[in-house]
């Protein structure tokens, strides 16, 4: 396998005005301009978006899966942080 492979890019697409850009996948491209064009061709063929962000994957810092316990479990026991102790009045809809 060539070591000169093009860098990997993460692709984020906003499906319509007012919504957030959401991660949809990744692709390879030699630079940002072509990464945007490739993202357009690969991820918006069926009118999925009105705006695209690409970020070189190497620039993303992620949590370590081995540290998931320390990172995330402590919040599991703090049920009082969730608004589950309120009685929802009868007249309230869409809750």
């Amino acid at each position: 396998m060539s070591t000169n492979e093009w860098p990997l890019w993460e692709v984020f697409i906003r499906s319509k005005q007012g919504l957030n850009h959401k991660h949809v996948g990744s692709l390879r491209a030699p630079d940002a301009t072509l990464a945007l064009e490739n993202a357009r061709d690969v991820y918006t063929r069926r009118s999925e978006g009105i705006s695209i962000w690409v970020v070189e994957s190497a620039h993303i810092h992620a949590t370590d899966i081995d540290e998931a316990d320390a990172f995330f479990e402590p919040s599991d026991t703090k049920i009082y942080r969730h608004p589950t102790f309120y009685e929802v009045p009868d007249g309230v809809k869409h809750m």
Binding site: W6, R28, N38
Partner: peptide, 11 residues
């Protein structure tokens, strides 16, 4: 030559 360009050309 690469998947991305394959799709671009068929588009």
């Amino acid at each position: 030559p690469i998947l991305e360009e394959d799709i671009a050309m068929t588009n």
